[in-house]
Simulated scan of single mutants.
Amino acid sequence: MYVAVKGGERAIDAAHDWLGRAHRGPAEQPALDTAQIRDQMALAVGRVMAEGSLYDPDLAALAIKQARGDLIEAIFLIRAYRTTLPRLGASDPVDTGAMRVKRRVSATFKDIPGGQVLGPTFDYTHRLLDFRLMANGELPASPASGAEGKPLHAPHVLGFLDRDGLIEDAPDSGETPPDLTREPMELPADRALRLQALARADEGFLLGLAYSTQRGYARNHAFVGELRIGAVTVEMDIPELGFSIEIGEVELTECETVNQFKGSKTEPAQFTRGYGLTFGQTERKAISMALVDRALRWQELGEEDQGAPAQDPEFVLSHCDNIQATGFLEHIKLPHYVDFQAELELVRRLRAGTEDAS
């Protein structure tokens, strides 16, 4: 039970003033510009957009600045703002096969049409602090490879397995999936709804679950069939015109995993898929999403339930949202004086009863 705190309004106003001063930092330092955050902290911006369910790098940068770098608080701000926006319509499904790729790697095939594109990645860097960034704030520019931003014919790698019937089909059902941002989650949830929940789930939570599947809690060994990052065109159908028009571009990260499947009485042995798709360059999140997606599919594939957390849809979907988790966690620091006094009185009575008996 929450109770009002007398005189608390002045304290709250003072806390807001203190937050404003702490947010700005020393006046002798230049203020951090949102354009700098957007362009130089792009990975943080990508996470805020992905888990905030709103693609807008400028607003994500503003939220990060306002939240003093607390990404979950920034995600909360973005989701709250998102609820105020009018909904004009629905876009057509994006074609990730036509992505303008800036990073594309496959751990299953070495030679793929279009080639492997390492792109901007920490994968091959030394994990050593670069003090040049502290000395002058920037690194010397290196000549561009020439591949970034140019259209690249990059068919999906899993299509090669699909051509030989070695991987499960992924047909389009043709049905419009439910919208998790407009309708509450209902269990049991089909795969389309699960993927929506995973796309906006907390990265750290998904990472832990994905790691558990690799360590045997679901027996879900996977290969990264393809990981790609780049810009895709967004189109929207205009009924008055009778055709679709381009309304913009978004940067996406897409991951498809290849998982073993022993087959059944009706299905031959083949590979199965895990899938992840997120806003921005968020490859750790996309890979984790693909692993958890595959773990949740055990029932539809007729596999044995290992009792692993990543296989339990209710556990995963009910706890993966960091905004819900943060709200429930942080509310316990608010006044609970009446509740605690009741608990305290109960413990005193119990202790008194024990003393009388002895």
Rank of each mutant, 00 (worst) to 15 (best):
T233A: 02
A231N: 06
A189F: 00
E267A: 02
E240C: 00
I247N: 11
Q196F: 01
V250T: 09
T213Q: 08
L209I: 06
E235L: 03
Y275A: 01
T233P: 05
R200Q: 12
G248K: 06
E267K: 04
A199K: 05
N220I: 00
A197E: 07
Y211N: 04
Y275M: 00
L195F: 01
F243P: 01
G216L: 10
D202R: 08
P188H: 15
M185Q: 02
R219H: 15
I247G: 13
K265E: 11
S212D: 15
T272S: 07
K265D: 14
A210W: 02
C255E: 03
F243C: 05
T266Q: 13
V232D: 12
T213R: 08
A199L: 04
A192Q: 13
N220Q: 06
A218K: 05
Q196A: 00
A199N: 08
E267I: 12
P239T: 10
R200P: 01
T233G: 03
G242L: 09
L198S: 10
L209K: 08
T272I: 13
L193Y: 04
E186D: 07
I247L: 13
A201F: 09
N220G: 06
A210Y: 09
T266M: 08
A199W: 06
F223T: 00
T253I: 09
E251K: 02
R219W: 15
A210V: 00
R219A: 10
A201H: 07
I245W: 02
G276A: 03
L207C: 02
Q196C: 05
E256Q: 01
I245K: 12
P239A: 07
Q270I: 14
L195D: 14
I238M: 11
P184I: 11
L187V: 08
N259G: 07
E254D: 00
L241Q: 05
R200T: 15
E246A: 10
F271S: 15
K265S: 11
A189K: 01
A189W: 02
V232I: 04
V232F: 09
A199P: 01
Q196T: 02
L227M: 11
S244A: 14
Y211I: 03
F223Y: 14
E235Y: 01
G230L: 04
V224L: 07
R228Q: 07
L209D: 08
E267R: 00
F271R: 13
N259S: 05
L206V: 04
T213Y: 02
I247Q: 09
E267N: 02
G230Q: 07
Q214S: 06
T257K: 00
D202H: 05
R215V: 11
E226H: 01
A192N: 14
R215Y: 04
A197R: 09
Q214T: 07
C255F: 09
L227S: 06
R191D: 03
Q260P: 03
F271W: 12
R194N: 06
Q260G: 15
F205Y: 13
E203N: 12
A192C: 00
G216Q: 07
Q196L: 02
Q196S: 07
G230R: 04
L198D: 05
F261Q: 00
F271Y: 15
E203Y: 08
M236L: 07
A222H: 11
G225M: 02
A231V: 07
A269L: 11
S264F: 12
R191C: 08
Q260V: 09
G230Y: 10
L252P: 03
A218Q: 10
